[in-house]
Design a protein around this nucleic acid. Structure first.
Length: 301
DNA sequence: GCATGTCAAGTTGTG
DNA sequence: CACAACTTGACATGC
């Protein structure tokens, strides 16, 4: 069975004021402090619980949790928030649902960085892992904390080795959840480029179909798919989006995502889960299923 | 309630 | 060579 999911925002619920990613700008955090951040964090986890319940009701079994769940979490310990008991109870309720939750921390995370950049990265990734711990989720790539290598620093191979060395600085649970994704930019990492990193530290490779189209390296889509597939010790989870430029807006940037998915997804006979990165979120999942059926080919089953 | 200017972080290549 | 894109547009303000 191939399960489709989406990322972070549910448009239907968002229109009703239910969100899991309310944040604040720096100035507001400095004015209102941790007390206010705690209130927002509680609202966000409650919103997340509603979104997860909605997904379960609709039969959607994959969902990416927003990285904005805990606003300014790098500035405090979650367990010290005034609303922590309620936050924890709500996260536990989220984690009890039968849904594959993942997350995709932002582009500021640079595991091959150094100094403050690396320290901030570790802090941010550990927060994501702590949230999954609070949900009671196992420390495996079933609940991937997925990042890009994010920079080549003039030497792709050496950068991969630095990533691998820095990996040992992470907690065991975070190491168990981490995954890496192929990039869309010519100077960065294709699936083939990431294989040595997988061999060094065991992290699985998330295959992003759209990024591969933009920057395939020497592999065909099918070859890249199978290469990434082989790096997983649990059911793989991959990303798919359609080109905004090709399908909706000819002047859009080449890497921009479309609102919906316009092509059937080829999973080459394999069982994987897929996050649809489409701006219309759950509506794109629903439209995909109506138009193309399950990517595994068992339409209506 | 809606338009607008602004918003933590790193790195890259497009336009 | 500024800035959008990437993760995810959304906060805060002023009309």
């Amino acid at each position: 069975m191939i399960n489709l999911g989406y990322a972070c925002i549910n448009i239907n619920l968002n229109d009703q004021g239910v969100s899991s990613s309310k944040g604040m700008i720096r100035r507001t955090f400095l004015e209102k402090g941790v007390q206010y951040a705690s209130q927002i964090a509680l609202q966000n986890v409650q919103g997340l619980l509603q979104i997860v319940e909605w997904n379960v009701q609709q039969g959607i079994k994959v969902f990416r949790v927003s990285s904005d769940l805990m606003p300014w979490a790098s500035e405090y310990n979650i367990s010290e928030l005034p609303d922590f008991p309620e936050i924890r109870a709500t996260l536990e309720a989220v984690g009890r649902h039968n849904i594959r939750l993942t997350t995709h921390p932002g582009p500021f995370n640079k595991m091959a960085g150094s100094g403050a950049t690396l320290n901030n990265t570790i802090r941010d990734l550990e927060i994501h892992s702590e949230v999954f711990d609070l949900m009671g989720l196992p420390a495996t790539p079933m609940h991937k904390i997925n990042i890009h290598v994010g920079g080549a620093y003039g030497d792709k191979d050496e950068t991969i080795r630095r990533f691998a060395r820095n990996f040992s600085l992470l907690s065991q649970n975070l190491r168990g959840r981490l995954s890496v994704e192929n990039d869309d930019k010519a100077g960065l990492y294709t699936v083939a480029d990431l294989v040595p990193l997988h061999e060094m530290i065991g992290v699985p490779i998330v295959f992003d179909y759209f990024h591969h189209k933009l920057h395939p390296g020497n592999l065909s889509e099918e070859e890249a798919f199978h290469t990434a597939f082989a790096t997983w010790r649990v059911k793989p989870i991959f990303h798919f989006s359609s080109s905004r430029r090709d399908w909706e807006e000819p002047t859009a940037k080449r890497e921009a995502h479309a609102d919906f998915i316009y092509e059937p997804i080829n999973t080459y006979g394999k069982e994987v889960d897929i996050v649809l990165e489409a701006k219309m979120k759950e509506l794109a999942v629903q439209r995909y299923m109506e138009q193309f059926g399950n990517p595994g080919g068992n339409v209506g089953a």
